[in-house]
Amino acid sequence: MKSVTVKRMVVAAVSTVVFAGAALAADISGAGATFPYPIYSKWADAYKTQTGVGLNYQSIGSGGGIKQIKAKTVTFGASDMPLKPEDLQAAGLVQFPMIIGGVVPVVHIKGVAPGALVLDGATVASIYMGEITKWDDARVKKLNPKLALPGTTIAPVYRSDGSGTNFLFSDYLSKSSPKFQSSIGANTSVQWPVGIGAKGNEGVANMTTQTDGAIGYVEYAYAKQTKMAYTQLVNKAGKAVTPNAESFQAAAASADWKNAAGYYLILTDQAGPASWPITGASFILVYAAPPDAAATTAALKFFDWAYKNGGKMAAELDYVPLPDALIQQVRATWKTQIKGATL
């Protein structure tokens, strides 16, 4: 009697495992950037309730995502830093942008309200190189003639962990200041000559709020939700712009995607009077000749669905969907460049 029950339990357990395995096999697997993780998982939840197909996305960082897709352990990789066309070619990968976000400088200066301070790239670069050390420096005053700035010492705060946020910020400063480019440069982590490093958006936000005279930079969603004192930035067209969904989308729309081979385009410092200068896209990487065409097709179906239905959800989390023209271009890329994938 007893052994019969045990046998039944074993059968039940084994069949559960088998079915669970089958369900997992149908899931889309991906790995990479942490920045788009909240929106990818939100899309995945909605997609699963509609279609029954789940997404298994490991937010292990862009570097990890690139390694995983090259090792063929996942169906797609995600990176905040686009791969160069020649690297794509060498690895047999196709790249396309998925979602847009922005990085926002935040400050903590007594008597300065959110959005009141205006800075430009060269000034921010000088601050992060330790050349401007007081808030009442002539170069800051020149951009803010009406603001009463105190003589507080500037405490620059940077992201200590390697991140797409670091890449966009240092890339923007490199484009704005030749000296920054030659002495520091752009990467997911760089060697900052001054300031203190805090871990993650939350660390930077916290250090900036705690320290009098601090300046930091965080993802837009973070600045918005914590109601920090963000700054305006003077863009390439010479206009002071406020960070918001419209100015990010303006930057994405004014970019010349048509002539960017492999979508290798960094959205910082774009032309256009309304463009926010520290805007960036997060990218997806898939195989040009997928070893498992069905899996890649399933992934592309998910991305297609996200382009079509994901805009509102993205806006709720303060991400910015791609402009329509760009989405059409990406769909055309799928058709021509990915072998064996049918939508």
Binding site: T34, I60, G61, S62, G63, G64, I66, M81, S160, D161, G162, S163, G164, T188, S189, G197, K199
Partner: peptide, 9 residues
């Protein structure tokens, strides 16, 4: 290591 390994390319 903890800070940089994940995004090291």
């Amino acid at each position: 290591i903890a800070n940089e390994f994940a995004e090291a390319v």
